[in-house]
Nucleic acid binder design. Structure first.
Lengths: 227, 227
DNA sequence: AGCGTAGAAACCGTATACAGTTAAGGGGGC
DNA sequence: GCCCCCTTAACTGTATACGGTTTCTACGCT
């Protein structure tokens, strides 16, 4: 009856687990095994393997000889991805500025309210979800689909950075401050303002990460060894 | 004996076909069928399917109900990827500047010579390969591995753009001119110069593509509809 | 002769089975 | 009691088989 009959199980499983990963429902301790997932969906291992292997190749999972787990990013890789985000996200957000609907902005405003409430409540879990919602709203509005898809891949890095920085009170306050400013900037419909703000946001995230983990910026070395 | 015994067939097949695609050995007309590839390697369909599906998910191939083929990019997608390249490649090339060895530069110089020789010979095939070599040399020197991998994915778009623009004499001359300038800039070890040159290079490629295909820039519309 | 339709062929998705590899855990030796 | 080795279980990779879907083709109808 419905047009969904042609949907392949491997795609269903892929979508389901990508959603779980993006919603943070898979934790570091979870070990995904194809036979177990196969049982969950009442299918054989093959479509499960297809789905999980795809998630591995896209960087959302890591495969080992003992099941699939969330990848644990090396600090080096986290810093590398900060550079990519610095290059892509300001422009992407500027493009999204002109696409966000009033409903999108209203939803973002509610998420910002939730974010601010965590300053007093200290509810890191809620901050985490609010942060996720705000990001999702604007990223989904990016009209350049290739650019949007590229940005969506950094979710693992972003979750790792949140895990590392959010327990830190200073990073928490900085993040909440940015959330309010983001809503203001997107609401103003001024792409140039949004672009600059998002650049500052990524740089602030990088700085928080460096402070919390005591690492130093990636590019210092190569730039200093230049002529 | 050799440490390669643990290499999985699916990885061997993946590497082999990724290489063939990158070297342009797969043409638009080719139709890859898993059973045929399986026969070529004397294995079953499964590792072949794994390899080909992976190439599909990474954008190097497209799957249809009738075998796997090179993806034919929509003009829209080609323009989207130009935007990504504009954002990433200048910085990536600047970072690569400090990593290129003297041998790299010498190899690039030889490729530039070959490129220039095609102005008189009109050998588009050689121009194609020289262009590929020059790009490969500097991209492989990008020290940020995540950034390098992201850039390497655009090979399909780049090949499509070359196919569309290289028969055009003006685009041909512009490209060769850039090749010489690139070698000069990389040799100078001045990242800032390289960054600007590569930005100009991507913009020139975009312009050639627009001119040849009679399309208009992607971002005109959203920017103009802004405040 | 052209178009529609039915059958066949090609190819993909999924199931089941087996082999190979790796890590864990228990038992034995030091 | 601790460490090492061997067994065993768990999990991945590959093979084979079958069913479903889509495209091609040939035949018949108009």
């Amino acid at each position: 009856m419905s047009g969904k009959n042609k949907r392949r199980m491997k795609d269903v499983i892929y979508d389901e687990y990508l959603g779980r990963i993006r919603r943070g429902e898979i934790t570091d301790e979870d070990r995904l095994v194809d036979t177990a997932v196969a049982e969950e969906f009442n299918v054989s291992r093959m479509p499960v393997r297809d789905a999980l292997m795809r998630l591995v190749h896209e960087g959302y999972l890591a495969s080992s000889t003992r099941g699939f787990t969330l990848p644990k990013l090396e600090p080096r890789q986290i810093l590398e991805i900060f550079e990519l985000r610095r290059l892509l996200e300001p422009r992407a957000a500027a493009l999204a500025t002109y696409e966000l609907t009033e409903e999108n902005l209203a939803e973002m405003a509610r998420a910002v309210d939730r974010s601010e409430s965590t300053i007093t409540s200290g509810d890191v879990e809620m901050l985490y979800r609010a942060s996720e919602d705000i990001r999702r709203i604007w990223v989904m509005a990016v009209p350049n689909i290739s650019l949007r898809d590229t940005i969506l891949r950094y979710i693992v890095q972003i979750q790792a950075v949140r895990m590392a920085t959010l327990p830190d009170a200073q990073a928490h306050r900085v993040l909440v401050g940015f959330h309010r400013k983001m809503h203001t900037a997107f609401s103003s419909r001024r792409g140039a303002d949004v672009e600059l703000l998002i650049l500052r946001f990524v740089l602030a995230g990088e700085e928080s990460y460096h402070r919390v983990t005591n690492t130093s910026p990636l590019t210092a070395a190569p730039l200093l060894t230049g002529p």
